[in-house]
Deep mutational scan, measured.
Amino acid sequence: GATAVSEWTEYKTADGKTLYYNNRTLESTWEKPQELK
């Protein structure tokens, strides 16, 4: 079967924080998503 690919993209901001963006739900979060833990 196909492996579930994470929908989350990780961005590094200018101040060194990490922003997570979900390509499916168009949601963005500063918290690390469950799927990435």
Score class of each variant (00 low, 15 high):
1 G>K: 10
1 G>R: 09
1 G>D: 12
1 G>L: 14
2 A>M: 14
3 T>V: 14
3 T>I: 12
3 T>A: 14
4 A>N: 14
4 A>V: 14
4 A>D: 12
4 A>L: 13
4 A>Q: 13
5 V>L: 13
5 V>N: 13
5 V>K: 10
5 V>G: 12
5 V>A: 14
5 V>Q: 13
6 S>I: 08
6 S>M: 09
6 S>A: 12
6 S>F: 08
6 S>N: 11
6 S>R: 08
6 S>Q: 11
6 S>V: 08
6 S>L: 09
7 E>T: 05
7 E>L: 06
8 W>Q: 00
8 W>I: 01
9 T>N: 04
9 T>E: 09
9 T>Y: 09
9 T>I: 14
9 T>P: 00
9 T>L: 09
10 E>H: 04
10 E>Y: 07
10 E>P: 04
11 Y>C: 15
11 Y>E: 03
11 Y>I: 15
11 Y>T: 07
11 Y>S: 04
11 Y>K: 07
12 K>R: 13
12 K>Q: 09
12 K>L: 11
12 K>Y: 10
12 K>D: 03
13 T>N: 07
13 T>H: 05
13 T>A: 07
13 T>K: 03
13 T>W: 06
13 T>E: 03
14 A>D: 08
14 A>I: 11
14 A>W: 07
15 D>E: 08
15 D>P: 01
15 D>A: 05
15 D>H: 05
15 D>N: 10
15 D>Q: 05
15 D>R: 03
16 G>V: 00
16 G>M: 02
16 G>W: 01
16 G>T: 00
16 G>Y: 01
17 K>F: 05
17 K>W: 05
17 K>Q: 09
17 K>S: 06
17 K>P: 01
17 K>N: 06
18 T>L: 08
18 T>R: 03
18 T>P: 03
19 L>I: 14
19 L>M: 13
19 L>F: 15
19 L>S: 03
19 L>W: 15
20 Y>W: 15
20 Y>N: 00
20 Y>Q: 00
20 Y>F: 05
20 Y>R: 00
20 Y>S: 00
20 Y>G: 00
21 Y>H: 06
21 Y>R: 08
21 Y>P: 00
21 Y>C: 12
22 N>L: 02
22 N>K: 01
22 N>E: 01
22 N>T: 01
23 N>P: 05
23 N>M: 09
23 N>R: 11
23 N>H: 13
23 N>I: 11
23 N>L: 09
23 N>T: 14
23 N>S: 11
24 R>Y: 11
24 R>H: 10
24 R>E: 06
24 R>D: 04
25 T>I: 02
25 T>V: 02
26 L>Y: 13
27 E>R: 04
27 E>Y: 04
27 E>V: 09
27 E>G: 03
28 S>M: 15
28 S>N: 04
28 S>R: 09
29 T>F: 09
29 T>I: 05
29 T>L: 05
29 T>R: 10
29 T>K: 05
30 W>E: 11
30 W>L: 09
30 W>P: 07
30 W>C: 11
30 W>H: 11
30 W>T: 10
31 E>L: 08
31 E>A: 06
32 K>I: 11
32 K>L: 09
32 K>Q: 08
33 P>A: 02
33 P>V: 02
33 P>I: 02
33 P>W: 02
34 Q>P: 15
34 Q>W: 11
34 Q>Y: 11
34 Q>A: 15
34 Q>T: 13
34 Q>M: 12
35 E>K: 04
35 E>N: 09
35 E>Y: 06
35 E>P: 05
35 E>T: 07
36 L>P: 05
36 L>S: 06
36 L>C: 08
36 L>W: 08
36 L>D: 06
37 K>Y: 14
37 K>V: 14
37 K>H: 12
37 K>Q: 14
37 K>T: 12
37 K>F: 13
37 K>E: 13
37 K>W: 14
